[in-house]
Amino acid sequence: MTVQPRSIGSNIILTNIETVPGKAITQQLGLVQGSSVRAKHLGRDIAAGLKNIVGGELKGYTELLQEARQEATNRMVQEAQQRGANAIVNVRFATSSLTQGAAELFAYGTAVRVE
């Protein structure tokens, strides 16, 4: 999966290094973050329980977490846009499972202006 900041109509650049290659940072705009807590619905839980007998990839969960991560990223990008940023550097992701049914996906980074 590619994190697609363009899906919400922006051209913000995301990197997880401290600079944006080919550009210079002109202004630091501080920490931005986004999070999303998702639970799996029962049908998927049952399917996953059955899949757990034979093993392998749980595609339903993979997709669910990707969607949740996308949403967390979108929220982070929105916050950065409100501050007038056009790039986010040093992006980090974190996942924590709250209970058996839900997981929190969290993305954070530093909003900057580049030229």
Partner: peptide, 28 residues
């Protein structure tokens, strides 16, 4: 990469790959 200069690079983008793997009954 955080502190390495990349003079040859012009464009950058973040890429993510993820997967959920599960154990089988025998393994568990």
């Amino acid at each position: 990469g955080a502190k390495v200069l990349l003079p040859q690079a012009h464009q950058a983008q973040l890429f993510v790959g993820s997967v959920v793997v599960s154990s089988d009954f025998f393994k568990t």
